[in-house]
């Protein structure tokens, strides 16, 4: 079955204290991870400066259904599709959905907003973002000890 990958950005429309919001995001990730296991989807969710950047990959129908759910979800605002392409392989094959919260240093270095505005809506930018998300995940264990990482292994 052909794989598709999708990357979108959105503004968080969550209400509450920082801890509340962290909890809500953790819930969203946990729920989507559970559903993704059933749907054969993998992906990652990066949140920085009030924005979500989420990558989803898997079968077309499951991606479409999940994305439609996101598009009906009022916890997001200004959902913007950055990339929707056929993919040869999964980038986030190990994670049914993983939450990346970069620490402040990382946020300064790579704000998602900057990343996406520089070469707006172009495949290069989307590719760069996806690569960044993956490297954030992989290097998490060693230098970026401050990043919190909640992951659900995809099996």
């Amino acid at each position: 079955m052909p794989l598709h990958r999708l990357l979108y950005t959105s503004e968080m429309a969550l209400i509450g204290s920082e801890t509340d919001i962290r909890q809500q995001v953790a819930d969203i990730v946990a729920r989507s991870a559970a559903r993704n296991v059933a749907d054969g989807l993998t992906g990652a969710l990066l949140q920085t400066r009030g924005m979500f950047i989420q990558a989803l990959e898997g079968p077309l129908a499951a991606i479409e259904a999940t994305f439609e759910r996101i598009c009906c979800d009022l916890r997001h605002r200004r959902v913007d599709l950055q990339e929707f392409v056929r993919a040869d392989s999964r980038v986030f094959g190990e994670w049914s959905m993983v939450n990346i919260t970069p620490d402040r240093t990382i946020e300064k270095l790579f704000t998602a907003a900057e990343l996406l505005s520089e070469q707006e809506h172009e495949a290069v930018s989307a590719q760069a973002t996806i690569q960044l998300m993956r490297s954030l995940l992989l290097t998490n264990s060693t230098p970026m000890t401050h990043s919190s990482l909640q992951s659900t292994r995809f099996s």
Binding site: H4, L6, L60, I63, E64, F67, E68, C71, C72, L74, R77, R78, V79, L81, F84
Partner: peptide
């Protein structure tokens, strides 16, 4: 605003955006 926001989001239908 909610209506405009939700309907302004992309629709993925059969691989088309």
């Amino acid at each position: 605003e909610r209506v405009i926001d939700l309907l302004g989001r992309p629709f993925l239908i059969d691989g088309h955006v």
